[in-house]
Simulated assay, not measured.
Amino acid sequence: MTTTMTWQEFERAEAEFAATVRERFGKYTHHVLATLRADGSPRLSGLEARFPLDELVLTMMPDSRKALDLRRDPRFSLLANPGEGTEMGGGDVRVSGRVAEVTDHETLSRFADALGAPLPFHLFRLALTEVVRTTVEDDELVVRTWRPGRPVRTVTRT
């Protein structure tokens, strides 16, 4: 079984890398979520990814296709909005893992208050299996990858 970590555990394990990833997600409101359809094919959907109560969570409209996908198969990948043009200011950032839906009313209400959003909505907490940041530095492609229980690994390509 694959090891996972919460966002907070990731921040404690790799504070500098987590801050960079969080800043990248904070540049834009809308990002791209990859889920798996019932037939196993990929589905890409836009969504807002935010950090209410200091935790990266996914929220979705009731019974949206992406929410139903995640209820059936919790695997996901979330790509930070790359921005306009080809600049990719801050690089390309992706988090992947599994989700767990929050269903207890008290927790949902706390997040609704923090988000300033009315219930009902689906709320998914993330269990991270991988975080990747890709940048171009000094004409080299630099890929930084983190997985639970391991330090950040950096690979460069010319």
Rank of each mutant, 00 (worst) to 15 (best):
V32G: 05
V32D: 01
V32N: 04
L33E: 05
A34Q: 04
R37L: 15
R37A: 15
A38G: 07
D39T: 09
L44S: 09
S45A: 13
L47D: 00
L53K: 07
L53H: 03
L53V: 02
E55R: 14
L58W: 02
L58I: 13
T59I: 12
M60A: 14
M60H: 00
M61Q: 06
S64F: 07
A67Q: 08
L68Q: 11
D69V: 10
L70F: 13
R72Y: 06
P74V: 00
R75Q: 14
R75E: 14
F76L: 06
S77I: 02
S77W: 00
L78I: 13
L78A: 07
A80D: 01
N81A: 00
P82L: 09
G83L: 01
G85A: 09
T86C: 06
E87S: 05
E87M: 06
M88G: 00
G89I: 07
G90E: 11
G90V: 10
G91E: 12
D92C: 00
D92L: 11
R94W: 03
R94Q: 11
V95R: 00
V95Q: 01
S96L: 05
G97P: 10
A100M: 12
V102R: 07
V102C: 13
T103H: 10
T103C: 04
T103G: 08
T103A: 11
D104T: 09
E106D: 15
T107H: 03
L108M: 15
A112T: 07
D113W: 04
D113R: 10
L119R: 12
R125Y: 11
A127L: 14
L128F: 06
T129S: 14
T129P: 01
E130R: 13
E130L: 05
V132L: 08
R133A: 06
R133Y: 05
L141F: 04
L141Y: 03
R144W: 05
R144M: 07
